[in-house]
C-alpha cells in the first residue's frame, strides 16, 4: 500500500530526481503522518537514490517524523518569545505529566509531544497546539487540565484569553 502512495506522488508531482525528494517526503508525511522504513526503500527503488542518503536528508530536518503521531499531537512552541514567557516551565511540566519528552509517543498511542519552533503566536505565549487547535497563554494549571482531558481521550475545548 505504501508503495502505491509513493508511486502516486511521484507521478503526480513528476518527480524525477533528488531535487524533488524533499517535496515527496513532505507530501508523504502530510498524508500518512510518518515516514517509515518501507517508504524509504520504495523511494530508493523508484528514484535510484541510496536509502541511507534519503534517511540522511530526511533526518536532517526536524519536520520529518519517524515515529507516528499520537491521537493527540501536542506541539509546544519553544521560540524566543515563548521562552521569555517561561515556556520551559511548560515543557518540563508536560514531560512530568505525560512521562514523554520531545519527539516521543505514549505507549497507548494517545499523546505525542513535539517541541517546535515558532508557531506564530509570538505575543500570546506560551503557545500550545493540539492537533489543529491553539491554546495561548498556557500556565501550569491550564496545562494540567488539558493533559488530564487528553489522557481520558477527550479533545479539550479551545481556550484563549
Amino acid at each position: 500500500m505504501g508503495s502505491a502512495l509513493v508511486q502516486e506522488i511521484i507521478s503526480e508531482k513528476k518527480i524525477t530526481d533528488k531535487s524533488g525528494l524533499l517535496m515527496l517526503l513532505q507530501i508523504l508525511q502530510e498524508r500518512t503522518g510518518v515516514i517509515q522504513y518501507h517508504d524509504i526503500v520504495d523511494i530508493s527503488k523508484q528514484l535510484g537514490i541510496a536509502e541511507s542518503k534519503i534517511f540522511g536528508i530526511a533526518s536532517f530536518y526536524n519536520y520529518f517524523r519517524f515515529i507516528p503521531k499520537g491521537k493527540f499531537h501536542i506541539e509546544i512552541c519553544t521560540g524566543t518569545s515563548c521562552y521569555l514567557c517561561d515556556c520551559e516551565k511548560m515543557t518540563a511540566e508536560l514531560t512530568r505529566l505525560t512521562g514523554l519528552s520531545n519527539g516521543e509517543l505514549s505507549r497507548d498511542g494517545l499523546v505525542s509531544i513535539e517541541h517546535t519552533g515558532c508557531l506564530g503566536g509570538c505575543s500570546q505565549g506560551p503557545v500550545l497546539k493540539i492537533n489543529d487547535s491553539f491554546f495561548t497563554h498556557v500556565d501550569v494549571a491550564k496545562l494540567r487540565n488539558l493533559v488530564s482531558k487528553l489522557q481520558s481521550g477527550e479533545m479539550p475545548e479551545e481556550m484563549s484569553v
Binding site: I40, A50, E51, S52, K53, F55, G56, F60, F66
Partner: peptide, 27 residues
Amino acid sequence: VAAIDHVYRGKRSVVDTVLGKGLYYSS
C-alpha cells in the same frame, strides 16, 4: 554503495544506516 550517511543534525548528528537498522541490513 552509500551504506551509511550523516544522519540527524546538531548535537544528535551521527554517521549511521537507515533508521539505525544496522550495517547487516544496509547495502
